[in-house]
Design a protein around this nucleic acid. Structure first.
Lengths: 226, 226
DNA sequence: CACTTTTGTCACCCTTTTGGGGCAAAAAAG
DNA sequence: CTTTTTTGCCCCAAAAGGGTGACAAAAGTG
């Protein structure tokens, strides 16, 4: 479920954007002026924000700056009627991630939104699927497959695999894992991590030739596809 | 030090880009055709890649796809003379992060590169690497290679090599090493440091002509690439 | 409540890592 | 050249790290 926020005061543009994006399976929220837009962006998590540059109450540039000041990194696509290079430069420097000049074709906007989503997907909890070789983990569907075959995981196993996949290629220590997946301070002499790593391996690696979960003794674990 | 790769075959464009970007304190590498560009992008870590779309040997779209297939997430800014919306859409869908149509003003390109950098700064999985000659140590991957060949190290060996590499060119005493790597007060008549230095040499230097680990008798050890 | 599933602990075993002893080789000192 | 110190390097035993089955507690389900 990908959520977008559109901040736009021209009714006609706003409506056609909303319609077009809704048809492409995005969840679209609308704000009709800058103040409202900022408020919504601050209170809800969006995957991409599309904002007009000229707006009542607070303009697009100000919204940008304010969001970045509040440590909100949501990608912002700025729309504008102003097409000079200086305008674009100014917009990008104030924290926008892309800048599109009106008039534009809807499909270009769609492509740019998707490009912004792709970039954020690595970290954002809203990405669609995580992959490593022929292993796929659906963040939305909560389904895991290897070589097309469904693998049933429990909640903790899923959480552990998701954490490993999000850090694909990076060795993560047991302390880091228990901290991030279990939320515990790895001081209690527990060996849950090892036990679960064992469960995961049985389900994910055992029946396959190329192993994905690797141990680096004394350092931690890593998912690697080589 | 921010490194950019420019893949562009038109001499004039290439040179003016290089000059402009160098003036803004970027380190700029150039490739004049697609094949060369791909090779460079695969072997070196760049912060942003700027690629022309139409290139000899291999075009920009193909480079994009190939890099993404190889799990390289470096932000890509595509340049093109083709300005139709469909071209842009196609480019963005193949894995590019931004798309700029020629002719453009340099300052817009600069602003877009900066916008990409801001975002890409996050996942720098390939950047945290220590090097000495053809020896590479990945701080995240915990992998060590020499001349492209993987070397397996234990945790202590890794810690020792990391310490030496962090102090590349500086002679570190055995007391310093045991203090920083083992966390012990080098008073016990132990010879662990010598023993481990020996392990490291076996794995890192033995099979190669140019030795990297050098002993300064009575003073300590150092990694030197000369 | 009875039953199933999930979660986490324990105990045991196996593997790898670690670091010391001892000695030969190399370097420095006399 | 001989002696002393330092370093390199083999072997080996102890320790640490990690894998795994059994089992009990906890959570979820009808």
């Amino acid at each position: 479920m990908i959520k977008l926020l559109i901040i736009e005061d021209e009714r006609k543009t706003a409506e056609s954007l909303q319609q077009g994006l809704t048809e492409h399976d995005f969840i679209v929220h609308m704000a009709l002026d800058g103040g409202q837009g900022l408020e919504m962006a601050l209170s809800t998590h969006y995957d991409v924000i599309i904002s007009d540059r000229m707006l009542p109450k607070m303009n697009g540039i100000e919204i940008c700056r304010e969001l970045r000041r509040m440590q909100i990194g949501t990608p912002i696509l700025m729309l504008t009627a102003l097409g000079t290079t200086d305008d674009k430069v100014y917009g990008l420097e104030s924290g926008a991630d892309d800048y599109l000049t009106k008039p534009f074709e809807f499909k270009e906007l769609l492509a740019r939104v998707r490009a912004l989503l792709k970039r954020g997907a690595h970290f954002d909890a809203t990405g669609r699927t995580l992959r490593a070789a022929d292993l796929e983990l659906g963040l939305d569907t909560k389904q895991v497959t290897r070589h097309g075959k469904l693998i049933e995981l429990t909640a903790k196993e899923f959480g552990l695999l998701e954490f490993l996949l999000r850090n694909k290629g990076r060795v993560v220590s047991k302390a880091e894992i228990s901290e991030r997946v279990w939320g515990i301070n790895f001081d209690t002499g527990t060996n849950v991590v090892e036990v679960y790593m064992n469960y995961l391996r049985k389900k994910v690696d055992r029946d396959f030739d190329t192993k994905l979960i690797h141990t680096h003794i004394g350092l931690g674990y890593v998912i690697r596809e080589s």
